[in-house]
């Protein structure tokens, strides 16, 4: 296999008695776009959050870019600089302007000067189509705009990998396209991405691989064509029936 960006081995996660992830093996190659699908509660978010240690694994190994994230001795802040994350509910910093949201991490972490960060921020905002919102406060933006700022904010740290947790689920339908367009651009430019989404169109078009999870396990994975047109697992079939037929 090519150089692995994400290498998860036998990952288990318990919330009290609730065994949420049951021995997950999950690999992502460099430049690969993986879409994670599965019913609600199957553990997709938990898996994603284990990749940057927002959740601490109960057991198993999580290696990102050769860094053992599951090892307590690893400098997690350093590791996270290379792992961008985009949340369902955007989580823009409410006390900062759009520009400041994007510039905060690079300047606070000494990656760039104020001027450099401002320039980079404006450029990033332009690529997501929001250069005129530089001075706006988050509350004045629509959901789609917020999510595009959130993507720009994550990109400002120049990550090698981007994690998306249902980035369009909280959006009004007419906003979804703009956000997906930004993500497609990213994929085209070779970004390594793990995307949890219910947007099957996006998965078909962009994903190199689709992973289907249920009950805390990976049930089936393969190319989009293989998964969507010819699913092998019964659970996959019934899940796809439900989402595609609505």
């Amino acid at each position: 296999m090519k150089h692995l960006k994400v290498d998860v081995t036998d990952l288990n996660k318990n919330f009290g008695d609730n065994h949420v992830l049951k021995g997950i093996d999950f690999k992502v190659a460099n430049n690969e776009v993986v879409v994670l699908i599965g019913p609600s509660g199957s553990g997709k978010s938990t898996l994603l959050r284990c990749l940057n240690r927002l959740e601490v694994p109960t057991s198993g190994k999580v290696v990102i870019d050769g860094n053992d994230i599951s090892d307590k001795k690893t400098d997690i802040d350093k590791a996270r600089e290379n792992i961008g994350m985009v949340f369902q509910h955007f989580n823009l910093f409410n006390n900062l302007t759009v520009g400041e949201n994007v510039e905060l991490a690079p300047t606070e972490l000494g990656k760039s000067s104020k001027e450099e960060a401002a320039q980079a921020a404006k450029k990033l905002l332009k690529t997501v189509g929001l250069e005129d919102k530089y001075n706006a406060m988050p509350y004045s933006l629509s959901g789609g705009q917020k999510q595009r700022v959130a993507i720009a904010r994550a990109l400002a740290m120049n990550p090698d990998i981007m994690l998306f947790d249902e980035p369009t689920s909280a959006l009004d339908p007419e906003m979804v396209g703009d956000v997906l367009a930004v993500m497609k651009d990213l994929a085209k430019n070779g970004m390594t991405m793990v995307v949890v989404t219910h947007e099957m169109g996006f998965a078909k078009e962009v994903a190199d691989r689709v992973v289907f999870m249920a009950d805390g396990k990976v049930m089936e994975e393969g190319s989009p064509d293989a998964i969507f047109d010819n699913p092998q697992n019964e659970r996959t079939k019934s899940f796809l029936d439900k989402v595609i037929n609505v």
């Binding site: 927002l54 989580n91 910093f93 991490a105 740290m157």
Partner: peptide, 19 residues
């Protein structure tokens, strides 16, 4: 808010103070 700040690599103290 804290999760987003920490995800960017900001240490706890910086995230606390700035966000």
């Amino acid at each position: 808010q804290m999760e987003a700040a920490r995800s960017l690599g900001l240490p706890f103290g910086k995230a606390m103070r700035r966000v």
